[in-house]
Design a protein around this nucleic acid. Structure first.
Length: 425
RNA sequence: GCCCCGAUAGUGUAGUGGCCUAUCAUCCGAGUCUGUCGAGCUCGGGACACGGGUUCAAAUCCCGUUCGGGGCGCCA
């Protein structure tokens, strides 16, 4: 029975069967080594020429990355990891072509473009695999966190009719005889679930943005971790967000020490309270650095880089001007709102808010933003017949992974990124 | 969408008008080597993004196209 390569060390001095990719075959004059790899690690098999001449000669010309299974005694040896497998039986299961379009164990680094073109090969590299093992821990631990706190997991529609909520561009899709769009966010649906009385909901699902941006931190399809809670304000959901991220970091530190080592990333440590900086304080901080910025201006990328670049930790920017936030964000006073962003340094990770719950305020806001309330009837109706006060946020899974692993391009933390020019693979 | 930069073997690169039938590494192939682990050694293989132009001569200069990188904008 096949075992994972990572388990071979528990079977020293007994016979094991492994299967995987032959990532390197080194033939000496009288002995041959096959470096085998699977999802759990690597180990080498040894085959002496004496007594195995035909297999020996066949193997020395087998291309790298061929799928092979082998059975043999696991023994302590002078191999770097301290043990190896003495091959008794070996099967060549599926031959790889040569040369590879992208070397898996080459000493040469390839461009991200070449790597994405051949992503299945790129993903075979332990450091790339490690990114996604860690991403799996992050999304699972946040899901568990929500479930433990009594949240209900929902699945909102990704094909939607609303032309826009204002702001971002949508991807149009043909929906039989009508036009529809890919959902940019579950925002309106998770709010409707508050009216439906679900109290606390979350969703981990794709979101689509048709913006023609071309930056290392934007993609057109990403995984959004969304939550919404009833009868709470913005301060409470900021606490929940801080705890969710700390929980995810703790899980990664506990379960992915090998992956963190492969990626040469130190164990994450979040032993600090996330600072809550108001938007107006942030503007003053920018002014103190000599940046010309008025209270009410949006925080541009250069501003975030100058001010946020020096804050090498998580922090909130709270009480944004109402003019800079969407119609569904609850006002704080005439000028400011209960909208917040969570930042790490210069990078926005999350945006959230206490939401409007009064149907009249909602209608006023829609009109003030130049939107047609009729287009949002399905949404506004949910506010008319008993909508509790509520608040929530959405966090980008890929961006959170970037921050945790100190990776600068979001394409690295996305399996098959969809950017301005890439729809395949 | 704007600004700047780039495109040379499967991969990553050198190359600033003639020294280029193009460098090096990796890779692939053949051989060699009593245990390698970035194996070593010998020999061989493989490339100037596309289209036009300038010139006696273009990988090299100019124009356009396509694709990519960096920055910005846009962005729930």
């Amino acid at each position: 029975m096949r075992i994972l390569i990572g388990e071979v060390k528990n079977h020293i001095d007994s016979e094991v069967e492994i299967a995987g990719w032959a990532q390197n075959i080194r033939a000496m004059s009288s002995v041959l080594f096959i470096e085998m790899r699977d999802v759990s690690g690597t180990v080498q098999g040894v085959l002496p020429k004496k007594g195995n001449e035909s297999l020996f000669n066949e193997l020395r010309t087998v291309p790298r990355e061929t799928i092979i299974s082998m059975t043999g005694q696991a023994v302590k040896s002078q191999a770097k990891i301290g043990y190896e497998i003495q091959i008794r039986e070996l099967k060549i299961i599926n031959m790889a072509e040569a040369p590879l379009p992208l070397g898996v164990v080459d000493k040469i680094e390839s461009d991200i473009e070449t790597r994405l073109e051949n992503r299945f090969l790129d993903l075979r590299r332990p450091e790339i695999l490690s990114i996604f093992k860690i991403q799996s821990t992050i999304s699972n631990s946040i899901r568990n966190y929500f479930v433990e706190k009594g949240f209900i997991e929902i699945h909102s529609p990704k094909i939607v009719a609303a032309a826009t909520e204002g702001g971002t561009e949508l991807f149009p899709v043909k929906y039989f005889e009508r036009n529809a769009y890919l959902s940019q966010s579950p925002q309106l649906y998770k709010e409707i679930m508050m009216s439906a009385g679900f109290d606390k909901v979350f969703e981990i699902a794709p979101a689509f943005r048709a913006e023609e941006h071309n930056t290392p931190r934007h993609i057109n399809e990403f995984t959004s971790i969304d939550m919404e809670m009833s009868f709470v304000d913005d301060e409470v959901v900021m606490d929940v967000l801080e705890n969710a991220i700390k929980t995810a970091y703790r899980s990664v530190a506990e379960t992915n020490s090998r992956e963190l080592e492969i990626l040469k990333v130190s164990r994450p440590d979040l032993n600090y309270k996330f600072r809550r900086i108001t938007y107006s304080e942030y503007v003053k901080m920018a002014n103190d650095k000599g940046i010309e910025l008025k209270d009410g201006d949006d925080l541009s990328t250069p501003v975030l880089k100058t001010v946020g670049g020096e804050i090498n930790e998580f922090y909130f920017i709270t009480r944004w001007p109402r003019d800079l936030k969407p119609f569904y964000v609850q006002p704080y006073d005439d000028k400011y709102s209960r909208g917040f962003d969570l930042q790490f340094g210069e990078l926005e990770i999350t945006s959230g808010a206490q939401r409007v719950h009064s149907p009249q305020v909602l209608l006023d806001n829609l009109k003030a933003k130049g939107l047609n309330p009729d287009s949002f009837a399905f949404y506004v109706n949910a506010f008319r017949y008993g909508m509790p006060p509520h608040a929530g946020w959405a966090i980008g899974l890929e961006r959170l992974t970037m921050v945790l692993l100190n990776i600068s391009n979001i394409r690295e933390t996305t399996l098959f990124p969809r950017d301005r020019t890439r729809v395949t693979p």
